[in-house]
């Protein structure tokens, strides 16, 4: 449905579903382990773990859950850890607004998307009303 252009080669490391609050915790721990295995420093590990935690919470709260793909690939001359979150929720009506700092939706969230964007090296988002949202983030190793 939603396609974000793939301009890189990658290898799938894992595929997970976010269905409960526990999944948010276990999958973000898995991603920290992947980041550690990839040789990232402690600060970068924390950055990507925190960023995915924000994205997973959005999926859980607004779309009731979704799927997560973790890949390792070569992008723009960097080795990258790539996390793609796909949900089939209500979608985001105004992406620019959702990406602006200090914006909070009904549930008192906010920080989520713009904060996650600041923590990673590349951030792509696509959303269609009533169809869902796809977010892909990358962190260079």
């Amino acid at each position: 449905m939603l396609d974000i252009t793939c301009d890189f080669k990658s290898e799938l490391l894992g595929k997970f579903a976010i269905e409960t609050e526990y999944d948010i915790v276990t999958v973000r721990q898995t991603i920290r382990q992947f980041a550690k295995d990839a040789g990232m420093g402690i600060v970068d590990q924390t950055r990507i773990t925190t960023a995915v935690s924000e994205l997973f919470r959005n999926m859980y709260n607004y779309a009731g859950g979704g799927k997560v793909f973790i890949e390792s690939g070569d992008v723009e001359g960097h080795h990258a850890l790539i996390v793609t979150c796909i949900d089939h929720g209500p979608g985001i009506e105004n992406l620019d607004l959702a990406m602006s700092d200090g914006y909070t939706s009904g549930m008192g969230m906010g920080y989520g998307l713009p904060g996650a964007k600041r923590l990673v090296d590349r951030f792509e988002i696509q959303s269609k009303l009533n169809e869902g949202t796809t977010v892909r983030i990358m962190k260079w190793k």
Binding site: V43, T46, R47, T50, E54, Y111, P114, G115, L119
Partner: peptide, 12 residues
């Protein structure tokens, strides 16, 4: 420290 840096970057 890593948590503090991340929180600041997150905007919190």
């Amino acid at each position: 420290p890593a948590v503090a840096i991340t929180l600041v970057e997150l905007g919190l």
